[in-house]
Design a binder for these strands. Structure first.
Length: 257
DNA sequence: AAGACACGCAACCGCAAACAA
DNA sequence: ATTGTTTGCGGTTGCGTGTCT
């Protein structure tokens, strides 16, 4: 259900800032500008591209629509499970959730949640009222307004030279923790089923290992390789810090391009 | 056929954090 | 320390399209 663009529906004056839907010409200009010259500041992007748009609007358009790494297909069942799971543990921190879902935007996830999942879950909760077993997502544990730490994508983008095209969003990985304190901290409790967590990593498709602490070993797998229900997703901050520092040594962006 | 309604998506708004001058 | 600017985020709104009556 994509509405047809009614271009320039709110142009007030010829030299006033433009609002409303983006025309294909505007998209083309913005895409070309960013692809070939990168982003220094978004307001300069708007200027250099000859767009009568705010920098904010340009950023939004790029992030939500023009970025080449965005998935065009509808959100899958599997992705929906991941969204539900992450929302349960993170609350409405859509950008954090999106950072863990390659090719998906915070806006897309937020829309999907508001228009489908939330409705469905509350309907299910009503239908199953009394049956307990909270189908309705528990009030997010992270309900308190904790500002999300910068994601890999944002830190990487911030570190990138201005004339460099914005890197693709990093694919999501899940990891399986074997033994040690990390598994305990993750609530996995050292059972035979590895606990899983998620983070981001660039070189998708590869299975790899990263050491956490002295004795904990983590297997990193793409979500496609993961057979456990999304309910098992948990965060293991220490583990991911170790992984990220290994992947992205300071001042080195070479692995991202 | 036409109007009412529901739905989904794109984009805007306001706020706060980060940063620079 | 202060002020101004930019960026990023979550909430909300507007509107096109599909479905129902």
């Amino acid at each position: 259900m994509v509405r047809k663009p009614s271009h320039g529906d709110s142009i007030k004056e010829e030299n006033k800032e433009r609002k409303g839907l983006w025309s294909p010409e505007e998209d083309e200009r913005l895409f070309t500008q960013i692809t070939y010259h990168g982003v220094s500041t978004w307001s300069s992007v708007a200027q250099l591209a000859g767009l009568r748009r705010s920098g904010k609007s340009c950023r939004l358009r790029w992030m939500n629509y023009l970025r080449p790494d965005l998935k065009k297909e509808p959100i899958s069942k599997r992705e929906e499970e991941i969204i539900i799971s992450l929302q349960r543990s993170l609350g409405n921190r859509w950008s954090t959730i999106a950072a863990r879902m390659p090719g998906r935007t915070d806006n897309e996830i937020k829309n999907y949640w508001n228009s489908r999942i939330r409705k469905r879950l509350s309907a299910a909760a009503k239908a199953g009222a009394g049956a307990g077993a909270g189908t309705e997502p528990a009030p997010p544990a992270a309900e308190e307004k904790v500002k999300a730490e910068p994601t890999n994508a944002t830190t990487a983008a911030a570190a990138a030279p201005a004339d460099m095209p914005i890197p693709a969003r990093f694919p999501v990985f899940a990891c399986q923790v074997f033994d040690g304190d990390v598994a305990a901290a993750a609530g996995g409790g050292g059972e035979s089923t590895p606990s899983t967590t998620s983070s981001t990593q660039q070189n998708s498709g590869e299975e790899s290992e990263a050491s956490v602490g002295d004795s904990d070993m983590i297997h990193f797998l793409s979500f496609d390789d993961l057979d456990y229900p999304a309910d098992f997703l948990v965060d293991v901050p220490g583990a991911m810090d170790a992984w990220e520092s290994e992947l992205y040594p300071a001042n080195s962006m070479s692995s991202l391009y």
